[in-house]
Design a protein around this nucleic acid. Structure first.
Lengths: 343, 343
DNA sequence: AGGTGTGAATTAATCGTTTAAGTGGTGATA
DNA sequence: TATCACCACTTAAACGATTAATTCACACCT
């Protein structure tokens, strides 16, 4: 009953024309007469030939209409993170609009070489865990664009993290404040911990370090104080990691009265922990976040944070990749003055 | 400087062996001597040949290691829905573990034929918007599995939605209750609305209809009442759609005292609206949800709902697809008795 | 010596298209 | 009437691999 899958050749044979003509009927309407084309298409429909095999097309044309989204973290983590999933949203809306398909590639996978041959391009979201991956990406020759981190020689989409951090910190900090920082992915450690030695010597071109620099400058300028052991490293913007750091920072003695958090998730966990410990926010503890997720505005008090549009970031990245120009973009951000910082 | 991309042939020529040998060095170690294999691999590394071109492999081998996840809704919607994104989580954890890649395919895309040729199999999550897609899926011959709906002839992963709905409704409803139902995707309409004519005539093998049947049986048995215009259709489990339905149901006169919701998101919006209108839950209004998302347990009162593991569903679907057995699975569910129903 | 089995490598067909180059045939132009 | 351009196709060479079938050399047995 079910014969082996039909090919161009079969169809050509049946219709008594060359394979080239069938191919042209599908791909280049101007290469044959309208009548013949319609006849061919109708005939294909009748005998059940659905069109040229895509796998063969990919090989021959060198184009697949698949774009790989290379994620810094695992897919499970990424889809559950509100910021990252909003980014995916932005990317996919553009891709769909352009008839492209989305391949999710987890940065902790073995090697990007698995897909580099058949994918049309890469959008790299966040600094990959294993630096090897970044190197491979840099070496290969397909179009690629980075988001929230940099690879030498590749265009990127980003906000000015340094300035954003600087500005939000500036708003939060008063002279004499004791400041702590809940940082995201500052070092390689897979668990939440303090950073005792100067974190500034870490060489990694990630947004976290830019933000850290911005925070430090603001602290410096404002006449506030911070010690190195008041900088925490949190490996992922995940509630449990954040909760642990929140506990540590709130139980430290003396306790900081201002905590700068590198994501809203972290800030929200801190806020919740503080409230449940009876600490008054912002009177006894000022908190700033980063990202501007929706939930951050639903809490009481609501969060003072840096708002950036992840969706827009995704759209810009996808657009940039698909246009052959491939230029870097710096996106705007907003400061949202919430109730976790005294006015 | 950069010469044209290296191929097997180039390498073979340079090393003075046949292409078959190079190919075997990468794919079938038993086909050549250990010494030669190591030499070839080292040499490839030296001259910068990263291994056989994947696009060519896909064509020749007929296998790509890519699995398509066919989503009922758009990607943007899906990644932002907690239930769906948890499902993706489950799927991708298994895929990654097996070295497979994940292609996200939005059900509202043009045609599945775009990818059917190079993908190894399909996981179909939720009944696709356009039924054409389902037909194409059923017709093609690659392994496929459905989740949360059925296609004639394809295996599926599911809970017993009929019984789950029946049981939760049974727990919630008392004799004499006036019941309303906030249903999900009961008809084709893209906006929230009531269903005036009997919805049971809708032929669609989706979980929503099974749930509806379960609810109806429970209502029937419990001596409660419902009218057809107290059944709402909500197109997506999205907060704004849900909010609108919540408003309508709460403002209807007389007002139902029991509302069965087909998702937690819907139930939570209803709960929030009710509380903000000063309606006492559960005294004046009993609410049940469906899914058992985390947020549903954080509210006060917390939700009475049907708990099912989306992650597990994803894992089972992926495992089933990858094992060549391809059998249907019925997963368990739990009733979570929360405070939105009086004990 | 002759037959045989084995391991290692090669040959050549194949996967299903696309597309540059070529081939007639027709009608217009000079 | 010769020339030229154009149209509508066909031919055949890629695209970059995999793999069944084959060859070859060598050692082992009897």
């Amino acid at each position: 009953m079910t014969k082996t899958k039909l090919t161009l050749k079969d169809v050509a044979l049946q219709l008594g024309v060359s394979t080239a003509t069938i191919s042209n009927a599908f791909n280049r309407p101007d290469q044959l007469s309208k009548a013949r084309r319609e006849h061919i298409l109708a005939e294909c429909d009748r005998i059940g030939y659905a069109g040229p095999n895509k796998a063969a097309q990919i090989l021959r044309k060198g184009r697949s209409n698949i774009v790989a989204l290379v994620l810094a973290d695992s897919i499970p983590y990424t889809v559950s993170d509100p910021v990252a999933s909003t980014f995916i949203k932005g990317v996919s809306s553009i891709l769909q609009q352009q008839g492209k398909h989305l391949l999710l590639y987890a940065g902790d996978s073995e090697s990007i070489l698995d897909v580099v041959d058949f994918v049309d391009g890469f959008i790299c979201y966040g600094a990959p865990r294993n630096y090897k991956l970044a190197e491979e990406l840099a070496r290969q020759s397909k179009p690629a664009i980075t988001v929230d981190f940099d690879i030498e020689g590749l265009p990127s989409v980003n906000i000015d993290n340094y300035n954003a951090a600087y500005q939000i910190a500036k708003k939060a900090i008063s002279p004499g404040d004791h400041v702590a920082i809940l940082g995201l992915r500052l070092i390689e450690s897979p668990s939440t911990c303090r950073i005792y030695d100067s974190p500034l010597i870490e060489v990694q071109t990630s947004i976290s370090h830019r933000r850290l620099d911005g925070y430090m400058k603001a602290i410096d300028e404002s006449g506030a104080t911070i010690t190195n052991d008041w900088i925490w490293h949190i490996p992922e913007s995940e509630r449990n990691f954040a909760k642990q750091a929140a506990k540590e920072v709130l139980n430290s003695n003396p306790r900081p009265n201002t905590v700068l958090c590198m994501s809203d998730i972290i800030a929200l966990e801190l806020l919740q922990s503080a409230l449940s410990m009876g600490i008054k926010v912002p009177e006894e503890l000022k908190i700033t976040g980063f990202d501007g997720i929706e939930e951050a505005d639903r809490t009481r008090p609501n969060l003072t944070t840096v708002c950036q549009s992840s969706a827009l970031k995704g759209e810009m990245a996808a657009k940039a990749l698909l246009s052959e120009s491939l230029k870097s973009t710096v996106l705007p951000f907003d400061l949202k003055m919430g109730e976790t910082v005294s006015a």
